[in-house]
Design a protein around this nucleic acid. Structure first.
Lengths: 209, 209, 209, 209
DNA sequence: GATGAATGAGCATTCATTCAT
DNA sequence: CATGAATGAATGCTCATTCAT
């Protein structure tokens, strides 16, 4: 029954540590996250962290990178399916988005990046270049194409992108920060479904566009 | 005979300290904000902070309260002007919102609350109860009234509120976190103007709702 | 009888801390010296050290500088008293040297510099430039002048300087390292007196040079 | 069938480790020397060190012992060649000394002992008993014999020993600590040659001894 | 024997908080 | 009221030592 003092599992360690670190960073923020706690949750000693990551900041970076970047390309690729009318394209994007959101703690990561953008501008830059810029850019391009085809109303395509994506970001952050402290629960899937149709068709009734 | 040239009146001290603290908290986040720096920016000594605030956390709370709560009621009152059709109501809300945003660093405060929601749940609760809940509640009520009058399409009124407000939150956070590190500039006023009309009328053209 | 928790004595603090640090560094060497112990001996808290010195290394530098450099110029000046024949010049130097040695822990400092020359080359450089180079240079110049006047035998003046000073360095280091652990006591004054006459006149008797 | 090309024989390991350790200890001092680096330079793993030495301190002791003690007896024996006049005896000693110095890093070891005498008094004791005491004792005895024969001037024989050996110690330490950081190069052989004749005959000219 | 991943006590450094002035 | 020197608990990081393989 005695637990061996040492446990050797070199291959999984980085992943386990990243997972634990993601939890703690998301809960506490970068500065308030204690390496002691990350180590404890990862089931290793504090010293072990330093076998795999040079310091706290590098661990933070690794967490951001591992949790998000791999998913970005997948989302993007799903949209480069030409031939779909704009409405269906958007509906596809949102269903993918909800699915990814349920699987990876994208809300926690977004929260971390927002929190630490002042202290780690380079990190915010990575997030911007790898995630936000691509997401906004892709959607903006799709909108512009649809405008060219006469499918979408005039206006700045990038601002239209904010109209499309903003509510989802708001939803994610709401779930991350306010639901835990007693805010009325929010169903992201429902939000996505209703918002898509709303923004596509408009809130008002019976008025010519 | 003693008459120091620039004697600050004691009554202004708390305000000055709060203003300095808001700056530093917004730049660094709660944990990374140093009382040394807040004191320096406020032009007082570190010890003086403790004459007005029990500890760092109380100072943080005061900052949040002072910076936002007074503005919430004002915004709310502006909307309880019955008689306006829903579209005009929303347009009024957005113009007010943009104006407030330009005056108070609401983006910084939002960022702080998001950041520290894990460490200070009570604080997130204050923010939720005093700000978010009221904002969402007010808008939701307005929508429900408009739905009853047949002005607004069916659907969960609270989710419609996310459709309306989400892009503005996204815009605020974008300016707060990504513009400073090289993100393409965003004009919040333009965003507000275009988004209102879009979400009211719908993105798509010539399709029956 | 209760000691006040805080003691304010800003003007003396740096000196007191340096004195305590000199003791500890001399006993333990740089790496093994604990800031805890330095603080305790200085009668302050660990944090106080950082009010006056940026870090351990800067404290080390300050110790070296304060303990030695001021004394170097004094020694040097004492020798620029022209008119004395070489023998008297050397005797003057040695009596001054012994006096300084008794007052400042030059042995401890020498030991520290020798010890840490590998880890802090810049420090060894300061020691070299400010102390050793000047000492050797001054003595070498005096010897060359005496050689020109026919007072001193031929030969490399710098090597003659080693013949003159080496035994005193050996004596200092002996007292620093071996006396404390049971080595037979050594009287530096006696060493100086006998060595001067010996090196001036020669060890051997009745042999023509 | 297995016959690894470069299998090191186990018997050589301790020697190889000691050699690597001597290098690192000499460069960094005891406390700053990392077992990681010693292991790397010895071409073994960190764990292997513990197969041969109980801990860092024992390794340090072994290094000191192996590097110096064997050479002491050799030097000593070379001097117990009776029949030589004192001057020749001293010349023999110095030539031997220079030769040993060139072969073993006696300067590094001396530096280490000086550095760590405070932390390892027992080690300084070994060094004292095995090296310094014997060296000083032997030379002092030779001087006393020469004094009895009327070859050497009166005076404390032990202090005369400092006059003889001090410059060589100074030279060794100079090369160890100051040459590497830009001090003017020093030729130990030249120093030995000139110093012997100087101290034997005296610096001054034309004065009756 | 040999390895190197894992450990955890130890230490330099930071900073919110206190209090003598 | 105001100050800022002083405090000391907290924490990131190091590295000698251990042990499963």
């Amino acid at each position: 029954m005695k637990q061996p003092k040492f446990q050797r599992r070199a291959e999984d360690r980085p992943r386990e540590i990243c997972a634990a670190a993601l939890e703690v960073f998301a809960e506490k923020g970068f500065a308030s996250a204690k390496l002691d706690e990350i180590a404890k949750r990862a089931g290793v000693s504090k010293g072990t962290l330093y076998l795999y990551f040079a310091d706290k900041e590098q661990l933070f970076r690794a967490v951001i990178r591992d949790a998000v970047v791999p998913n970005v390309e997948r989302l993007r690729a799903a949209l480069i399916q030409a031939g779909l009318p704009f409405g269906d394209l958007v509906r596809l994007f949102f269903s993918n988005f909800v699915e990814v959101t349920a699987r990876v703690p994208i809300g926690a990561v977004a929260k971390m990046v927002i929190s630490e953008s002042g202290n780690f501008p380079e990190l915010a830059k990575v997030w911007h270049d790898e995630v936000v810029s691509k997401a906004i850019g892709t959607m903006t391009a799709l909108i512009e194409m649809a405008q060219a085809k006469g499918e979408v109303r005039a206006g700045d395509a990038r601002l239209h992108t904010f109209s499309l994506l903003g509510p989802m970001l708001m939803g994610i952050l709401y779930r991350q920060t306010l639901e835990p402290i007693g805010g009325e629960p929010l169903d992201l899937g429902e939000l996505a479904k209703q918002h898509v149709e709303t923004v596509l068709d408009g809130l008002l009734i019976g008025q010519p566009a």
